Amino acid sequence: MIRLENLTKFYPSKLGNQYIFQDINFTVPEGHNIAILGSNGAGKSTLFRILAGSEYPNKGKVITDKEISWPVALATGIHPQMTGRENTRFIGRVNGVADLDAYEEKVKDFAELGVKYDLPVKSYSSGMRSRLAFGCCVAIDFDIYLIDEATSVGDQKFRKKAKDALLEKSKVASVIMVSHDMKEIREFCDSAILLHKGELGFYENLEEAIETYSKL
Rank of each mutant, 00 (worst) to 15 (best):
S125V: 00
I36L: 14
G114L: 13
N6I: 07
F21C: 12
F134C: 08
V107M: 04
P12Q: 15
R89A: 06
N25I: 05
T83N: 03
A133N: 11
F26V: 15
S123A: 12
F10M: 00
S54M: 13
I176D: 07
G198M: 10
K161C: 05
E5F: 00
G127Q: 14
E168C: 02
V178N: 07
G16T: 00
K108G: 05
A111F: 09
Q22E: 15
V107L: 02
R93V: 10
L206C: 06
G43M: 10
G84A: 02
I78Q: 09
C189V: 10
T27W: 09
E207A: 08
G43P: 11
G92W: 02
L37G: 04
E67H: 11
F142D: 01
A111D: 12
T76F: 12
I210C: 13
F188E: 10
R129F: 06
M82K: 01
P120V: 13
G198D: 08
Y124H: 14
S152D: 02
S152Q: 03
R85M: 12
D65H: 07
L15Y: 14
A209K: 14
P12A: 13
Y213Q: 09
L132Q: 10
E105V: 03
K215H: 14
D155Y: 02
K171T: 03
G16P: 00
P71G: 11
K106D: 13
T76A: 09
V72M: 08
I78Y: 08
L194P: 06
F110D: 09
K106W: 04
K160Y: 07
E211L: 10
F110N: 12
T46P: 07
L132G: 12
W70D: 08
D118N: 14
D190E: 12
S45H: 14
G96V: 09
L100Q: 05
N58H: 05
K14S: 12
Y56V: 02
V153M: 01
G92K: 01
I140P: 03
N87C: 10
Y124Q: 10
N17G: 00
D164V: 00
C137P: 05
T8D: 01
